[in-house]
């Protein structure tokens, strides 16, 4: 790890903070995957890692390499853009297929296709 010794203190502190906060948020998202008790709630958990986690850790990596190697072409931007564009698509398709399966089995209380059942608290005037 010889190259990391060249990192000055003013850059090392934000890099460490970004890394630790990003990884802790990702861990909380994965814990949510374990703790939440039904599939539709669990659908929200990985978004934590995919939004905040990816952005913070990529920022840390960009800052580290920009200071160390004086390289101002940020290819981590590619990962951020790609993950932010694709994760919603995956989750939307997964939610749709889960809804479809639950409707066919009819065991879970999911809203029906023809007439969406209004939930007790969140109602809509239409």
């Amino acid at each position: 790890m010889s190259h990391l010794t060249d990192l000055p203190l003013w850059a090392a502190i934000p890099v460490c903070i970004l890394l630790l906060v990003g990884s802790i948020i990702t861990l909380i998202g994965s814990i949510g995957l374990l703790r939440l008790n039904n599939f539709y709630s669990r659908l929200h958990a990985p978004t934590l890692g995919a939004s905040a986690g990816v952005v913070l850790i990529s920022l840390a990596s960009m800052l580290c390499f920009a200071v160390l190697q004086n390289r101002w072409i940020f290819h981590e931007v590619l990962i951020v853009v790609f993950i932010i564009l694709t994760t919603p698509v995956t989750l939307m398709l997964l939610g749709q297929s889960a809804l479809y399966r639950d409707r066919i089995e009819g065991t879970h209380d999911v809203p029906l296709k023809e007439k969406p059942v209004p939930t007790p608290t969140g109602t809509d005037p239409d």
């Binding site: 790890m1 190259h3 990391l4 890099v15 890394l19 990003g22 990884s23 990702t26 998202g29 994965s30 995957l33 599939f39 669990r42 659908l43 958990a45 990985p46 890692g49 995919a50 986690g53 990816v54 850790i57 990529s58 840390a60 990596s61 580290c64 390499f65 160390l68 190697q69 981590e76 990962i79 993950i83 994760t87 995956t90 989750l91 997964l94 297929s97 889960a98 399966r101």
Partner: peptide, 29 residues
């Protein structure tokens, strides 16, 4: 319990693995 849960787990797993690879990249430049 169901197939969609497993797919969701796999999705989270590969995002976490990708982040881990980024930290390895920082460590070894």
């Amino acid at each position: 319990p169901r197939a969609q849960d497993r797919i969701l787990g796999l999705d989270a797993l590969y995002i976490n693995a990708m982040l881990l690879l980024l930290t390895f990249g920082m460590r070894t430049a």
